[in-house]
Design a protein around this nucleic acid. Structure first.
Length: 279
DNA sequence: CTTTAACCCTGGAGGC
DNA sequence: TGCCTCCAGGGTTAAA
């Protein structure tokens, strides 16, 4: 599933492929995603130039001329690849953006949990879009500190794992990296968020930043360019997980058996020895 | 207000 | 081999 590093790599690939290019066509084969693709597409962006491609959380923001911005989410099975406009359409290829010069981006999403939303310019700053307004800070742009985590978790009885996943304090920590970050910070996933100590918050801020950066750089080095990747469809970054999906296997730190549990209907993996509730 | 659970969807795994 | 059931997952909303 695309986590923040994959989304960021995708964003960079889109920039490389299509920034400052004019959209000449946008065939849509399937509008039924998380929400239906708006009827005004593609008309409202045809012949417009892609002036910027940014990211907020796991949303990719494509600004088309002075018309507005497309909010593109990959859900959990989505991907965007560059191809030639004539490339045969595989199952679950839902649409493509064709730019002048022959550049083309294909949106592919078997489970259709992804979404494509339209934010017209007159609706105001795109960052105030309902889907974006309440998001936590970006972990890779500075500002994620122990103080920020302590402030955001103060008084919360919910587990630290679930608070991280909720994305209201910091974005981009999906199910995989929540487990990985907590392991790296040696914090038990069930710790009530409000009980986080300063030392733990310090380690957690560091762990989140390092975990995401590691994934980003390893993804960048192994695939170079996600959008232009020629590997098998749907191949995501090869994660060298410390705990994720390693139930029963020895902890790389202490050798104890990695445990799996469910929090909020989601799997959590942790080392019972390295991550203790009481510290 | 907080917390929980259901939902959207498909591919893959496991049981028989 | 094939059919059936179950499950994973992110993000959102309805319900408790």
């Amino acid at each position: 599933m695309p986590e923040l590093p994959e989304v960021e790599t995708t964003r960079r690939g889109i920039e490389t492929t299509a920034l400052n290019r004019r959209l000449v066509a946008m065939p849509v084969r399937e509008r039924r995603l998380r929400w239906p693709i708006p009827d005004c597409l593609p008309d409202c962006i045809l012949s417009q130039t892609l002036l910027a491609c940014q990211r907020r959380g796991k949303y990719i923001l494509m600004q088309f001329g002075d018309q507005g911005t497309l909010l593109v989410h990959l859900g959990m099975s989505g991907s965007i690849r560059s191809c030639s406009p004539e490339t045969f359409w595989r199952p679950h290829d839902h649409l493509q953006w064709e730019f002048d010069g022959g550049q083309c981006l294909r949106y592919h999403d078997p489970r259709r949990f992804g979404s494509i939303l339209w934010h017209p310019r007159q609706a105001g700053p795109v960052l105030e879009h309902p889907r974006l307004a309440a998001l936590g800070i970006e972990p890779l742009e500075g500002g994620l500190s122990a103080e920020h985590l302590l402030k955001g978790t103060r008084g919360k009885a919910q587990s630290i794992k679930q608070v991280l996943l909720a994305g209201q304090i910091v974005v981009g920590v999906g199910n995989i990296y929540a487990s990985e970050s907590l392991f790296r910070a040696r914090i038990h996933p069930e710790l009530p968020a409000g009980r986080l100590t300063r030392a733990q918050a310090q380690r957690l801020a560091r762990a989140i930043i390092d975990t995401l950066n590691d994934a980003l750089s390893s993804g960048g080095s192994t695939l170079r360019d996600y959008v232009n990747a020629t590997g098998e469809p749907g191949s995501y970054f090869d994660l060298h997980a410390a705990v994720y999906e390693r139930e029963g296997q020895p902890c790389r730190q202490c050798g104890s058996g990695i445990r799996r549990m469910v929090q909020g209907q989601r799997a959590t993996y942790f080392c019972p020895r390295c991550q203790r509730l009481r510290r």
